[in-house]
Design a protein around this nucleic acid. Structure first.
Lengths: 199, 199
DNA sequence: GCGATTAAACGAAACGGCCCGTTTTCAAGC
DNA sequence: GCTTGAAAACGGGCCGTTTCGTTTAATCGC
């Protein structure tokens, strides 16, 4: 008569069926792409995964938790390493926009931002990923520092935040089809801020 | 005994009761602030406004339409005009963050961004408001051009887009409490891109 | 002018439907 | 036998719509 997992064991001895979990996560991703965040319901995911709702609720306590795990499964975008900061940044943004456009990552990330507006867990996760040197852009800038291309006094977090902001806004306003020239000009502006002597 | 409006005449002879419309718009704003976008339902707005749902549906065909009108009723943020570009930009961002923090505008704008992810009308509106010289930041930059502070070849739209992106991301990640130093440093970076000679 | 007429918007209530999150039941497998 | 999970049913909320009387306010005849 096993109905539910003992809540106390949920995080200890319980292990979920990998096949089933995979099917659910894949279904969640598919629903997100096809119906968008507005159509992302546990019911829809369960239907698509041919799973029962209790199965989903057993392993993911909230919509945000499921969304977060879908996000973490996403393939990462390629981070170029050309040896030149500007090329790395332009290349990264090009890759990122293409990645968001051509895979499900764009839908997933947009939904995560949306969910973060009302769910604390998603909000915290989003804040964590955006933190300075842990971000892809932050790493690119740190590398440039390491090889002496820019001064070590540059505030990587600030520059990374600016570039991430640019990417976010273009994702949220459906402007991922920016041509390379726009990306390049934008990066160039930010770069000049790095290269120019402080006022 | 007239019962309802003929749809064909809806846009001709129809008039809506200003008092009722006001009450609905105010209720919508209040619901948005108190329950957030997730709790923003037509039903909740009607309850709060002591209005019938049909009344709302009669005048606003969608949630997005209602949200847009609430947004348009918002007080505008003060745009400083000190005669110095950098001061204007820093002052504007400070005002904007405070405005978003301390009034309902932050909630309203966040909801508008969220709605734009699934509604074309909201999306188009958002894209329209963000367009270069029509934006507040665009105006500040154009003024600086007009008084010769910066070159006329500066791409106002690009710089305005960067600054708007920064503001958006900080709104969406609940980072509106940035101290003035962070804002000033960010503006300073962008400003250097303007002041420095092109590569 | 002014009261009667009539059109229109109004609040309230109820509808069928969908999805929520939860609980119960029951079949299958390690 | 014990765990797992699929299926079904639950109470509840909101959806968008329709149908009621009722109230407000322009229009028109006198």
């Amino acid at each position: 008569m096993g109905v539910d997992v003992d809540p106390a064991r949920r995080s200890i001895g319980a292990r979920r069926n990998p096949d089933s979990a995979d099917a659910i996560l894949e279904a969640a991703e598919a629903v997100l792409v096809e119906a968008g965040y507005a159509g992302f319901s546990i019911e829809a995911v369960a239907r698509r995964a041919r799973a029962g709702k209790p199965t989903i609720y057993r392993w993911w306590p909230s919509k945000a938790a499921l969304l977060l795990e879908v996000y973490q499964r996403q393939k990462r975008v390629d981070v170029p390493d050309t040896g030149r900061l500007e090329e790395d940044l332009v290349g990264f943004l090009k890759n990122l926009f293409a990645h968001w456009r051509e895979t499900s990552s764009g839908s997933v990330f947009r939904s995560l931002i949306a969910e973060a507006q009302s769910d604390d867990a998603a909000s915290a996760a989003l804040a964590g990923y955006a933190l300075g040197r842990r971000s892809h852009t932050g790493q690119i800038i740190e590398r440039a520092k390491a090889r002496g291309e820019i001064g070590v006094d540059i505030d990587s977090a600030l520059v990374a935040d600016l570039i991430a902001s640019f990417a976010w806004k273009h994702l949220l306003t459906n402007q991922l089809d920016e041509d390379e020239a726009t990306i390049r000009k934008t990066v160039s502006y930010v770069m000049r801020g790095i290269a120019a002597p402080g006022k």
